[in-house]
């Protein structure tokens, strides 16, 4: 864990409302362990925006880190206004990572909404290790996609309006692939995205008795375990009257990656939304 003032080398819109930023931060880049980990960005040097903004790492190349972010509110807007050459204050690397298994597991990677970043990094890591896998990325419409739909390469894009790739959410596509994969070999699902999507994915993987690892989000005050704000509820069959850490888990330290069977997904838990822009 380090704090570093990173120099921005690139920041551009790669699809509608989706931005990609690269910056040089050798100290953090050298300490990264793997996909799932995130950084916490001090977007605003003034107190206009009091808290840092957590962002998954979308890739690491040498001393460069890449993030992919969706314009949401004032913080991400401010991020999008930064230009190459300017600097930002980064805290990281934070959190745990997806635990990847042996070569023949044939995983399915599913990403949607702001959850594309860690999934893309995992996709690239698996490619480097020549682990065959399926990548499914969802968006509402074609303009929000920056990858190419390419079934031959096991890359499937979905759109809610059918304007690109498969029609519908990632869920039916995942289920149809799951049928193929389970007939081929044991599969595992790695997922990141909005809560309703994760819930639907979990329902299906439970039916197929397939492991599912999910990178989760929560409202983070610090990212480093000192504020106790980022909790998610664990599935706990034997709650005790007095406990700490048995019912709630700190997403910034214990997560963000959890086995889907171990947590209770609730939309109520991290929707503290202001206005959508």
């Amino acid at each position: 864990m380090k704090i570093e003032v990173a120099s921005i080398s690139g920041n551009k819109e790669i699809a509608r409302g989706i931005w990609k930023m690269d910056f040089d931060c050798p100290n953090i880049a050298n300490n990264v362990s793997g996909p799932g980990q995130f950084i916490n960005i001090k977007v605003d040097p003034s107190w206009e925006i009091p808290l840092r903004r957590p962002m998954s790492i979308a890739g690491v190349k040498g001393e460069k880190i890449t993030i992919i972010y969706k314009l949401f509110g004032k913080g991400t807007k401010m991020l999008s206004e930064l230009r190459p050459g300017q600097s930002i204050n980064i805290l990281g690397p934070l959190g745990n990572m997806f635990s990847t298994s042996d070569k023949d597991s044939f995983p399915i990677l599913v990403g949607g909404g702001v959850g594309i970043a860690p999934i893309l990094w995992l996709h690239n890591e698996l490619n480097i290790k020549s682990v065959s896998h399926i990548l499914i990325i969802g968006a509402t419409t074609a303009e929000e996609h920056f990858l190419q739909h390419n079934p031959n390469k096991n890359i499937f894009l979905t759109t809610d309006d059918g304007s690109m790739g498969e029609l519908g959410t990632v869920v039916p596509t995942m289920e149809s692939k799951l049928k193929e994969v389970t007939s081929r070999s044991f599969g595992i699902i790695y997922a990141c995205g909005p809560t309703p999507m994760l819930k639907a994915i979990h329902r299906i993987t439970t039916g197929y008795k397939i492991d599912c690892q999910m990178a989760l989000e929560s409202y983070m005050g610090c990212g480093i375990g000192i504020c106790q704000s980022c909790v998610i509820e664990r599935k706990n069959d034997s709650p005790k009257e007095h406990s700490y850490g048995k019912r709630f888990s700190l997403v910034c330290r214990d997560g963000p990656v959890y086995s889907a069977d171990k947590v209770i997904l609730s939309s109520r838990y991290f929707k503290v939304s202001g206005k959508k822009t």
Binding site: C230, V231, Y244, F248, F270, V272
Partner: peptide
């Protein structure tokens, strides 16, 4: 005794 604390959301800017 140890305490779990309140359910989330526990913080907002």
């Amino acid at each position: 005794h140890p305490r779990e604390g309140n359910p989330p959301p526990r913080m907002v800017e």
